[in-house]
Computed example of a mutant assay.
Amino acid sequence: MVKSLDYIFPDPPAGLDPAALDRTRVPESVAVIMDGNGRWAKKRALNRLRGHKAGIEAVRETIRCASDLGVRYLTIYSFSTENWKRPEDEVVGLMDLFAKTMLAEVDGLHAEGVRVRTIGDLSPLPAETREAFDAAWEKTRDNEGMTLVVAVNYGGRQEILRATAACMREAALMAEETGEVLEPTEEMFERGLYTCGMPDPDLVIRTSGEMRVSNFLLWQIAYSEFVVTDTLWPDFDRYEFLRCLLEYQGRNRRFGGVA
């Protein structure tokens, strides 16, 4: 059932008009760099893990709103390959939080038809965390609604190296079979990406005002639109998401062509 904009945005703040959103131009794929949990906690004299816990509601809100609006793919950057450098207690707490949150949320996501998948190398994660993500995939894999992509232990440079190795193996195998040395193609390379079969992000949102991509989807965001908001992630809600979508819809996407 298609939900009305009034239902999705029941109490917009002054100056923000949900009716300005063109539902025929909602991006197919949105990626979010969820930043600012630590600063949110510091402002309140709390430890960083409390900030991560506070960010869960923002994740719920964004998933629900994106799904209701017809976004087909929502990718959230949960844990990068560089995040292992954080204090051990924070990393351990995050891994436990991932497992508990996924187990608590999967039934609701399944009921809404959301499909859950991960990108990144899950092998170094604790067994309980891996199992929670695997269970979510198995439960929701046949759903036909929005795909929620959780990037965990993900790094764009590492993904490119991984895809390059796969591309080289494929080219070598084809050379053995045909006797011809073939030039690698973008299609061959993309088959080695974690995101194989998914559309590239139309829109990348970064919270907390930082102006960097942080090793996120480096191949895939070549022509994505970027919207940066000063809002810290735990304070991000459906109305902030609406503002990002409206800014996106105000862009002229030329993909290197003429305006």
Rank of each mutant, 00 (worst) to 15 (best):
Y223V: 10
Q220V: 10
R212C: 07
W219V: 02
L232M: 15
G192H: 14
F216A: 00
L232A: 05
G209C: 04
C196M: 10
L193D: 13
M211N: 08
E210W: 14
P199Y: 07
T229G: 05
L193Y: 10
P201E: 04
N215S: 07
M198Y: 08
T195M: 06
V204Q: 10
L193C: 13
S214W: 09
V227K: 02
L217D: 03
T195C: 08
P199K: 12
L217T: 06
W219P: 12
Y223N: 14
V228L: 09
W233G: 06
S224P: 01
F226A: 02
D202K: 11
L193N: 01
V204H: 03
V213A: 14
L217W: 15
W233K: 07
D200R: 13
D200I: 03
S208G: 13
S214V: 02
M198D: 14
S224I: 00
V204A: 14
S214P: 01
L203I: 03
T207K: 09
T229E: 11
V227D: 06
D202V: 03
L203S: 06
Q220S: 01
S208F: 09
L232G: 07
L203M: 04
N215R: 04
P201L: 05
E210H: 14
L203N: 11
F216E: 00
M211L: 15
E225D: 08
T207E: 00
P199A: 10
L232W: 10
D200G: 09
T207M: 06
W219H: 11
Q220K: 10
V213H: 12
L218N: 01
L218T: 09
N215E: 01
T231Q: 05
V227M: 04
M211A: 15
T195L: 04
G197A: 04
F216V: 03
C196P: 00
L193G: 08
T207L: 13
M211H: 10
L232S: 04
G197K: 04
S208Y: 05
T229L: 15
V213C: 07
W233S: 06
M198E: 14
V213G: 12
E210L: 13
V204Y: 11
T231I: 10
E225M: 07
T207S: 07
L218H: 04
I205N: 04
L203K: 05
F226I: 13
S208Q: 08
E210C: 06
D202F: 09
I205V: 13
Y223C: 04
L232T: 04
E210P: 11
E210G: 13
L232R: 13
M211W: 10
F226K: 09
Y223F: 14
S214Y: 00
M198H: 13
S208D: 07
S208L: 04
P201K: 13
S214K: 05
L218P: 01
C196E: 14
D230G: 10
I205C: 12
V228I: 12
F216L: 01
L232Y: 14
N215A: 05
F226Y: 06
T195I: 07
P199I: 07
W219T: 07
L193Q: 12
S214H: 00
R206Q: 10
Y223K: 05
P199E: 11
L203E: 03
N215C: 08
V228D: 03
T229C: 06
L193K: 11
A222P: 00
T231N: 02
D202E: 07
D200L: 03
V204T: 10
S214F: 03
E210I: 14
T207F: 05
L218G: 00
G209P: 13
T207V: 09
C196A: 15
D230Y: 02
